[in-house]
Design a protein around this nucleic acid. Structure first.
Lengths: 202, 202
DNA sequence: ACACACATACTGCAAAGGGCAGTATCTGAG
DNA sequence: CTCAGATACTGCCCTTTGCAGTATGTGTGT
């Protein structure tokens, strides 16, 4: 009943609340599940995934229940009716803009501080990583789903994730071909950068 | 000469060092430039962009020079020889994996906690944002470049950025079409989720 | 029967990063 | 002469990360 000092909620709060809306989990399970599914578009350190459920309980959006496996204690979290209400209300709020961290692209952008071999190595690593992820996504799609009644939503999100990885993969291959035509990282020789920019500018 | 307590360097340190490798900037210019260019793949709050150059100076990778415009002071940063060396060495280290925050996708993933109108609104916002960004990138590509001698590197990075935004744009359009065939967020009716998953699994 | 790897189930701490408010000066257009 | 907008930052508090540390299950092989 009392709402006292309901601390602010972050996207991380709602992401975990979303998982709790599907079923109850122990903190450990919740953390693992978040890393399997949410990690693709809402990556969070395991540390946070242990802290956040406590805030949800504090705010009355979830309940915590202490259990144990022999001598080892564990906490099972479940969503409350208020939690479901808040989750539904949150869906109405406009989301934060997409933001991506891509350190390797910083290295590409400043490639002229180094040599062609370094640039090529960076591009190869980008390509390898994207390839791994395409495979990981294919695996996930092939495996029987954890929540059969939610496959339509999984299909939607997996599709974007795959498209993104494939885009990176294709770009990296193209970039390696372009870079192979350069004389050095500071001199692209005959290579026509303007043509690429013109294509981007439509 | 002394290396005393050279604090750790982060990717943000190297990103700014990269900009300093191009020319000297005041902190304000550096912050703005970082937001114009780096923001696409290494977004950082303005606040950090003011702190970081101080660490670079501390580590001997840059120098700070106090100037003034009338009564208003300003600090001009320049890279040192040690800075260029460190930057080149950093290019060799494998980069952190790509990581993206996409809050709107969390809302799509948990769309079954709300109704179809909420899901459609989320998809429309995703589409609008991606459209804005495609236009912003086209603008950047059309505008005369700040560093003419580096257009080849800009072309490479802009290309990926555009591909990424277009991927999101195309996906959002597709997703809206799919969702229009659903009966509710919990019941996709005749819609064939398995077909989508099979396509992903190859 | 015992070892040992691996999964479960967390906590503490320091440092990086984000968001917002606040302060002040300079520049150009009307 | 005014006023918006650009320049040039700092302080504060909270979130998030990363890593190390501390246990207790469970299953597999020998």
């Amino acid at each position: 009943m009392s709402r006292c000092a309901m601390a602010r909620r972050t996207t991380t709060s709602y992401a975990l609340l979303g998982l709790l809306a599907l079923r109850s989990w122990t903190t450990y399970e919740l953390a693992k599940q978040a890393q399997r599914s949410l990690n693709w578009f809402w990556p969070r350190a395991e540390r946070k995934l242990y802290d956040e459920p406590k805030h949800l309980v504090e705010a009355g959006l979830a309940t915590a229940h202490a259990e144990s496996t022999g001598k080892r204690p564990r906490t099972v979290y479940a969503i409350t009716r208020a939690g479901r209400r808040e989750l539904a209300a949150w869906l109405d709020e406009p989301a934060a803009p997409r933001a991506g961290e891509f350190e390797a692209m910083v290295k590409v952008f400043f490639a002229d501080a180094g040599d062609l071999d370094q640039l090529r190595a960076t591009l190869e690593r980008i390509e390898a990583e994207a390839g791994d992820r395409v495979r990981a996504l294919a695996d996930m799609a092939a495996r029987p789903p954890l929540f059969a009644e939610r496959v339509h939503l999984s299909a939607l999100t997996l599709r974007l994730q795959l498209d993104q990885e494939r885009t990176v993969l294709a770009w990296a291959g193209w970039a390696r071909q372009q870079v192979d035509q350069w004389r050095s990282t500071t001199d692209p020789g005959e290579w026509d950068a303007q043509a690429v920019l013109d294509a981007i500018a439509e």
